[in-house]
């Protein structure tokens, strides 16, 4: 009683000895509180308020009699017993039903929980480009023959194999990072657009705008600025390319459905076609390999693509099974 701290009005209202003092009931409590109030003049207002509340209004309470309550209880008890007997008859039919319902509920609940931790995977075939909107609002364009996966509860952390272009929404309020993980490195992002390509046993990142950090598998952190193109192989443990590209379309045009070739040898250009469509490339002669090509070709339609190449350079391309055979005209 005496050890207690009295700071809030609640402390007084819930205190039995305080009530005793208010109604001047118990000698010890009365002297205790008179002493306490004398020593705590700053609490006078609170004490008066609490006293008012304890005194309040007094009612001449007129509750129903014990007999009445007992009578009402008997009435209720009879109703309960009658219902029980009626229900026992019903239960026989209801039981299998309710069991089925609970199982159904459990299954759907399981699905819901599983759904939360589900891995979502988007996969593209050759010649296919997929636009994905992630749960956090970020846009991803997935190039052909690529795979992007993430867990529903952690949609700002994605695994990539293949090639994808990211437009990450900045989360200003939480400053939440976005992660792209590949076999070679992880890209740490706040909000920007960039391209990641893991084809050819390396990961190449091209930053279009914003700022990203690469965390390479060997532990090195690398900061990138817009225009930077970095490729790294974890197997070889080395940075293969670190250049600045001033024409971003060269690296990111695929997302709009076309590949740009800027004074590229046909051999190099056909490597890109191979990546996109999955056809094996066979050159019949060395001259066609060395031919230089400039222009754009579609990456979702192989026939138009072949026509476009045939038109811009002097070669003949034959599509046979899963190969493209290239020869001089």
């Amino acid at each position: 009683m005496i050890k207690r701290k009295y700071t809030k009005i609640n402390d007084f209202l819930e205190d039995a000895s305080f009530k005793n003092w208010v109604v001047q009931n118990n000698g010890t409590d009365i002297s205790f509180w008179e002493f306490w109030i004398l020593n705590n003049p700053d609490k006078k207002e609170l004490v008066n308020k609490a006293k008012d509340l304890v005194l309040g209004v007094s009612f001449d309470k007129n509750f129903v009699s014990k007999e009445k309550v007992a009578f009402e209880w008997k009435k209720l008890e009879t109703k309960i017993q009658v219902k029980k007997i009626k229900q026992q008859r019903k239960v026989r039919f209801l039981k299998p039903l309710s069991i089925a319902a609970s199982i159904l509920l459990l299954i759907s609940l399981g699905f819901y929980v599983a759904n939360f931790y589900t891995k979502v995977t988007h996969k593209t075939n050759y010649g296919e480009i997929l636009n994905i909107k992630l749960l956090d609002g970020s846009d991803v364009t997935l190039n052909s023959n690529s795979r992007l996966s993430y867990y529903k509860n952690e949609s700002r952390k994605v695994w990539l194999s293949g090639e994808a272009f990211f437009q990450v929404d900045k989360k200003v309020e939480t400053n939440a990072k976005f992660w792209v993980l590949t076999n070679d490195l992880s890209v740490e992002v706040y909000g920007t657009s960039f391209n990641v390509n893991t084809k050819k046993k390396k990961t190449a990142v091209f930053l279009e705008e914003g700022k990203v950090w690469l965390k390479l598998k060997n532990g090195v952190d690398k900061k990138m600025i817009p225009g930077n193109y970095v490729s790294y192989s974890a197997k070889k443990n080395e940075i293969l390319e670190d250049i600045t590209i001033f024409n971003p379309t060269l690296k990111t045009s695929w997302k709009d459905g076309s590949l740009f070739f800027d004074n590229l040898s046909l051999e190099k250009a056909m490597e890109k076609i191979e990546e996109s469509y999955g056809y094996a490339i066979v050159f019949k002669d060395e001259t066609s390999k060395k031919t230089v090509i400039t222009g754009a070709v579609p990456i979702t339609n192989i026939d138009i693509c072949i026509q476009a190449i045939e038109k811009s350079v002097d070669v003949k391309i034959i599509k046979k099974d899963s190969s493209l055979i290239i020869s001089k005209k």
Binding site: K61, F63, V64, V69, W73, L76, E77
Partner: peptide
């Protein structure tokens, strides 16, 4: 339940 009933019936009645 009967304890509950006897405790709260009078107050709820009023």
């Amino acid at each position: 339940f009967s304890v509950l009933f006897e405790t709260y019936y009078p107050k709820l009645h009023s």
